[in-house]
Design a protein around this nucleic acid. Structure first.
Lengths: 214, 214
DNA sequence: GTCTATACTTGGATAGAC
DNA sequence: GTCTATCCAAGTATAGAC
């Protein structure tokens, strides 16, 4: 209640030193979601990973949940940048499938989707958290829809497939594949599916640009 | 170390009264996974839901984790019976799609897949738990594969689609749809996809049996 | 077989010293 | 801005009375 524009924890960061700590905590929270899971991502665990102090979680973020949401924002933003850049360079369906496979591999290896899935599953506990997480899924859905929209122009499917339904399905598949492959520690089966999608996409390569151009 | 054949907690249940408590705890554990999530499913929460005592969790199951695994076994068995019965009555692809939609609706409404997903996501915490959960996914995968196998006989896809890859994808999609629709509390988008699958399946209804027969 | 009591650990969160 | 100390609630697990 002291200064204005100050929610739970100090949101601002007017001071220079503060930012480093915040960032370290966010990084550690990402790791913790990835390796300890939602249920294991406590203030103490995270602080230890950040080689920082447990109290700072509450100072900077107000609550553990808010830190976890900040962590989710971070990975979400990072991935969205990466996705945009990668997809922009893929003109043909085949190239797109290849790029998607590459991105998916990264997501699995770096645990980005793990973070998302852990937050989604963890949100079962509280409707409030659920709402916050839901907000952060929207960009993934709309981005996917845009990509599908773009990829389908010039193919027979363009007019048949409702792209927001397709996006919903693709994101669901993405999340499910993470769950499965993470569980048995084997990416190969999931990646094989992308291979297959690649071959399938090749059937429609006449659409926009020649594969040779990429 | 006392008697043989006795793991953590009393596994047997030679006495008649014991079974009721065990069953109540399992039921409560299912509810807890569904509504409190993996992270909220503690011995205390579960015992409260079962209107039983916290200590009994450890008496009967040895640990909370083992109780949760027993809960997962329970839903897994229940669903497998239901699936088998339902699919057995579906002879044409269209009927199969309809039945699948029906089953999926049940799964969402009754929270069966929630339980599975919570356990999968919760297993991130410990490799040991992960292994146990992984074991319990196998039946879902092989059942799905069998259904796909059966559904594809007589269609053009029969020889083209590797059914275990397809099963992997279908299960992944199933899990992902649960995650998404559970999060925003809206089943309609997921169910719409099944509608679409139904229409698609109708294209191959000449295969085994006439739709009229069902 | 069940319940209460209890021990111990971990986690969320705040207060106050530096 | 950071760290330590501290409080309190919740969690796992066991012992012992009924």
């Amino acid at each position: 209640m002291a200064k204005s524009g100050q929610r739970a924890g100090r949101t601002a960061g007017t001071d220079p030193r503060s930012n480093a700590t915040r960032q370290a905590l966010i990084e550690a929270a990402i790791e913790s979601l990835r390796f300890d899971g939602f249920s294991g991502a406590s203030a103490r665990t995270i602080a230890t990973r950040a080689q920082s102090n447990q109290g700072l979680v509450f100072y900077h973020f107000g609550s553990v949940t808010d830190l976890l949401l900040a962590a989710l924002d971070e990975v979400s933003n990072r991935r969205m940048e990466r996705y945009s850049a990668a997809v922009g360079s893929a003109e043909s369906p085949t190239r797109l499938a290849t790029v998607a496979a590459q991105i998916f591999r990264e997501d699995l290896d770096e645990g980005y989707v793990t973070v998302l899935v852990e937050m989604m599953a963890g949100a079962t506990a509280s409707p409030a958290l659920g709402e916050e997480v839901a907000k952060r899924i929207v960009p993934w859905l709309s981005f996917t829809r845009q990509v599908i929209d773009h990829a389908l122009t010039g193919t027979p499917f363009a007019t048949v497939v409702p792209t927001d339904d397709a996006a919903y399905a693709v994101v669901a598949l993405y999340l499910g594949l993470e769950l499965l492959s993470h569980l048995d520690g084997d990416r190969s089966r999931a990646l094989a599916l992308f291979e297959r999608a690649s071959s399938f996409a090749a059937l429609f390569d006449t659409g926009t640009t020649s594969p040779l151009e990429a």
